[in-house]
Structure formats: C-alpha cells, structure tokens
Design a protein around this nucleic acid. Structure first.
Length: 348
DNA sequence: TATTCGTGGCA
DNA sequence: TTGCCAAGAAT
C-alpha cells in the first residue's frame, strides 16, 4: 500500500472512530476553521506524558476549571499548582508547567508560539510535545512521535531493531507519512490507533483499518513488535516516614526543588537506602524528639526502584515543619498520602 | 548517551 | 503477585 492510500484509510477511520476526550474538539483540526485552544492542547499534552487518559482526565478538568487561561495559571502560587498536581506523578512536569506558563505570559504576551521551533524553547516541551502542540493547535505538518506512533510504525514496517536503538529509524519512517494535509488529525489518528487497536499486548488486527498494509501482521506475530531489549531489575530501598501530629494537624515538610518528588509537600523521612533501618536508627533519624511508635509499613513502587517505608507516629512538637490539617493531605504525592493514611488509620 | 523521574491499572 | 505499561523531558 502506498503512503497516500494508507493515510486516507487511517484518516477515514479517525473521522468515524476518534475517541471523545475532554481536551479534544473533534476530528476537525485544520478544517472548517476549527482550531483548538493552544493552552488546553499544551496542558493536556503535558499531563499525558507517560500518563494514561483515565488518570489525566480529572486533572485536566480541574486545572482548566480553576485556571481557564495560561495567564491565570502563570499568576498562581507555586504551592497551589504543586498541590493540584499531587497524585499525577512526574512532578518536574508541574514545575515546568508553571515555568512555561510564566514564560508565555512574560516573554510572549500570553500567546503560545505557533511553530514547533518556538514551542521547543519552552520549559517542559521536548521533541514530542512541541511537535504535538504545533500540529494539533497550529496545523503545522510536524512529525509527532510518541510511544503509540513508535509501536504502530514498527508494526507497519516490521522493524526488527529493538527499542530503544530503533528510535531514530522509527522516527524516519514516521516522517515518510507526514503531509501538509490535516497534520493534527494525522498525529491523533496514529495515537488513537495505537491506543485502541494497535495495542501493546493484544492488538485488535481484525478491526485495524490498515491491517492490509501491516508487515508485522504478515509475519503472523504482530504483538511481538516493537522488539525491546531486556530491562534491568528494579532495586529495593528502605526508609522511615514520620507522622507527627498535634490533634488534627500533621507535620509536613517541603521537599527540595529538584530531584525525586521535588517541590512537593511530604512527610518527614529518613534517607532512602538499600539496607533496612534498625529500630535505633529509625528513632535516631526522627525530625524531633518524641515518643515514636512503630505503626506499620507501606510499600510503594517508583519507576526505577521499590520502596518500603517504616511508619513511626508520635504526638508532639517540632521546629521547621508545616502543620497541615488531615483533610489537606490530598495535596501530597501518593507515596506520602498512602503512608499518612496507613499511620493515621485505626486499623494498625 | 544513560539515568532519573510517579502512578495506577491490568494480565 | 509481579512486571509491564501510558500522548517523554531534563540532565
């Protein structure tokens, strides 16, 4: 199948089967003058980085209701935005989100740059997001390559090189399918196909509009594409989290601005290391002298390690902490929300 | 170039 | 239960 026929089939499929997403106007980009709001496109794309649609959707609705424009977001306090992002993960995205909003407000008069190159210069907009916003919001014929596109293209062309080595090759192949016609729809059609039909595990090839053009399907084992190199095992780390209360108030700290969970509110913790903590070590690392009681453990999986947090609880005073009511704990990253709930529950 | 950076759902 | 995985970017 030639590229033009493939494009026609996939775009026709998208016209009828496009997903109804909170941030999506519809399969009308670049046609009939319908243009999506760059702010909403940008916000959704950042939230969707390594994040599923069901997880991102309520956050997108919350953010757009509270901050309808990029200027409104730019004028908000850091802590409010970080708390609103809590639970969505990859918190550098939230820091870059604010930095980007403020750059747009200050350096661009509140208007997003309308080219891939211009967008690429903003914080948090890498190769994928800059290309996606340029295509979807500004009708630019960019090469939008995410994990979906890599999978779809690797199957269409039966690319044998394993990821991540195959990335440059996949990007070149994707480029051969980009045209000036409906670039935003094309990008989203590829991603929708990857998300709903050309899925990682059990692709629904019998429903695929371009199955007849798929070299991987012709091999008889389309699900084995893209090939991948073996992953390293995830190490295990141990730490102690301290739940210090004064009645309804819980002692929190603001984590350093960079690194893991950077800039987020958190429970005070020990350092996290490979060796478990002895009772004495856990007591010694406490943020304040108190009658610390061992109240349990919680497990939490991060991207590149798993963590066992020993939970110590006490009632008492401490310096340099942020006293926060229990009802505000939803502004914490999930690992600390999980730990605080476990320590404060009556089930332990 | 290789690592670092979350979370929740699912097979 | 465990590993895999989702619209990647920054360093």
């Amino acid at each position: 199948m030639n590229p033009e026929a493939l494009r026609a089939k996939l775009l026709a499929w998208y016209d009828g089967e496009a997903r109804d997403l909170a941030w999506r106007v519809g399969p009308t980009d670049g046609r009939a003058g319908v243009r999506q709001d760059p702010y909403r496109v940008w916000l959704s794309e950042v939230m969707l980085q390594q994040t599923t649609v069901p997880h991102a959707t309520p956050y997108f609705l919350k953010f757009t209701a509270r901050w309808p424009t990029v200027t409104a977001l730019a004028n908000e306090d850091d802590g409010e935005v970080m708390a609103a992002w809590a639970g969505l993960g990859y918190y550098a995205r939230a820091r870059n989100l604010l930095a980007c909003a403020r750059a747009v407000a200050k350096d661009h008069g509140g208007i997003f740059p309308d080219t891939e190159e211009g967008l690429r210069g903003l914080p948090g907009l890498g190769p994928y997001t800059a290309a996606a916003v340029a295509a979807i919001a500004f009708d630019r014929a960019t090469n939008v390559v995410d994990g979906n596109v890599e999978r779809v293209v690797s199957r269409l062309f039966a690319v044998e090189t394993p990821l991540p080595d195959a990335k440059p090759e996949l990007k070149r192949l994707a480029e051969t399918l980009v045209r000036d016609d409906r670039p935003g729809d094309w990008a989203q059609a590829l991603m929708d196909l990857g998300a709903t039909i050309c899925k990682p595990k059990s692709p629904l090839c019998d429903r695929c509009p371009v199955a007849s053009a798929c070299a991987a399907l012709a091999t008889g084992a389309p699900e084995t594409y893209p090939h991948k190199t073996a992953k390293a095992i995830r190490p295990h780390r141990h730490g102690v989290a301290y739940v210090l209360t004064q009645g309804d108030l819980v002692a929190l700290v603001r984590r350093p601005p960079k690194g893991l969970l950077g800039g987020m509110l958190a429970l005070p913790t020990s350092d996290w290391r490979s060796a478990p903590f002895t009772e004495a070590q856990a007591q010694a690392a406490a943020p304040a002298p108190a009658d610390w009681r061992h109240v349990g453990e919680v497990e939490h999986g991060f991207t590149h390690f798993t963590l066992t947090l020993t939970l110590l609880r006490a009632e008492g005073e401490a310096d340099g902490v942020i006293w926060s009511p229990r009802r505000d704990l939803d502004g914490l990253p999930s690992v600390f929300l999980k730990a605080a709930r476990a320590a404060l529950s009556n089930l332990i």
